[in-house]
């Protein structure tokens, strides 16, 4: 709890949480959520982008602006009750809010805003490109976490890191080009030497360091990056069984193996299972490997052993929802062993 929160400017609004802590929304804070987390408070959240609804708050006093009034993270009930999303709300002056804090959501690495310079890129598939950026200070995060990248026009998108934390300041991402997507296209148009701002790290689906359970990593499409980062962290221990599933639409969308082959135990304790969902597509011609929806393949291949595993996943919402249902409802895997951030 902060006794006297630091204001970077005199005009920076003070935000008081009813019955407890307070924090300052400084100019670098895009929303109340970023400000609270930077102050070390456990304000519940997942996606930081208006979709999941985890960061719902009630504004009790003071004036705020809403960045995205129609954000899908608020249900009809939430709106009836006057709730707002901390990630889509900015204070216009001092405000008082009501929210239940959760110690587990307090950042273990304090998020910071830093400027990145693009160092190199390489294409992994027809629409996924790896970006390597360099920051002036160390790249500090926990494998599995994401950062918010800011491009021009105040646009912000969350992308997970694919490398490991490092003193050299290298931030690596694997980004899928979304047709018509303003931020992904702006990133794909960047040339080495160009700069952008990063705010991070964020996210709670990070490596459980003290676990010795076997690990199952499941990625679909753009969910590749955080699973690669986790594989790099866990795969360094060849005595630990690790199964890595990657689901792509066609055979041409399969990637990830080149990032794993040099890890200890590859092909032995560390197994890579690519899965293609659309065999009838011409781009899948000649595919002899696993096929179907990745969650179904995971269920078939791993079965009951999933109940003993530490499971991490990231990918498109339909994949994430199907996995949640299979793990929680069908297999009754203890919730504590399932790690994901809900994005929509």
């Amino acid at each position: 709890m902060t006794a006297s929160p630091a204001r970077q400017t005199d005009a920076a609004p003070l935000v008081t949480i009813e019955g407890g802590a307070s924090f300052v929304q400084n100019p670098g804070d895009a929303s109340l959520l970023q400000a609270a987390l930077r102050a070390g408070l456990g304000l519940p959240y997942e996606c930081s982008s208006g979709g999941c609804g985890s960061c719902r708050i009630q504004v009790l006093a003071g004036e705020v602006e809403t960045l995205w009034p129609d954000a899908p993270g608020l249900s009809a009930r939430d709106r009836r009750k006057g709730l707002q999303l901390a990630c889509q709300t900015r204070a216009c002056g001092d405000v008082t809010i009501k929210v239940g804090l959760d110690r587990a959501c307090a950042p273990r690495v304090t998020p910071q805003v830093t400027t990145l310079e693009l160092a190199a890129t390489r294409d992994l598939t027809r629409d996924i490109r790896e970006f390597s950026f360099r920051a002036p200070g160390p790249a500090d995060f926990i494998p599995g976490q994401y950062a918010i990248l800011r491009t021009g026009d105040g646009l912000r998108r969350c992308y997970s890191m694919s490398n490991l934390p490092n003193a050299e300041g290298i931030w690596e991402f694997q980004i899928k080009r979304v047709p018509g997507g303003a931020v992904s296209n702006a990133l794909f148009d960047m040339a080495p030497g160009a700069t952008l701002d990063l705010d991070g790290p964020y996210g709670l689906a990070y490596l459980v360091e003290d676990s010795t359970r076997p690990v199952v990593l499941i990625a679909g499409g753009s969910g590749l990056a955080p699973m690669i980062s986790l594989a790099r962290a866990i795969g360094a221990d060849p005595s630990r069984r690790l199964d890595f599933f990657y689901g792509g639409r066609t055979a041409a969308d399969i990637c990830g193996e080149t990032h794993l082959v040099d890890l200890p135990g590859f092909g032995d304790s560390l197994l890579y299972h690519p899965v293609v969902s659309t065999l009838e597509d011409p781009l899948s011609a000649g595919w002899q490997g696993l096929s179907g929806f990745v969650h179904e393949v995971v269920g078939r291949q791993m079965g009951e052993s999933l109940r003993e595993a530490e499971i991490y996943f990231a990918g498109p919402p339909p994949m994430a929802e199907a996995l949640q249902r299979m793990l929680m409802l069908d297999l009754k895997v203890p919730f504590e062993q399932i790690h994901y951030d809900r994005f929509f």
């Binding site: 249900s75 239940g100 929680m328 919730f335 809900r342």
Partner: peptide, 24 residues
């Protein structure tokens, strides 16, 4: 977990399921 109303979730076979993370 996150104050989501269980009235927005599922109710089957005597079990309440939260819509967000499927807590039961």
């Amino acid at each position: 977990h996150q104050d989501i109303s269980l009235a927005e979730g599922g109710f089957e076979n005597g079990v309440l399921t939260c819509r967000a993370h499927l807590w039961q």
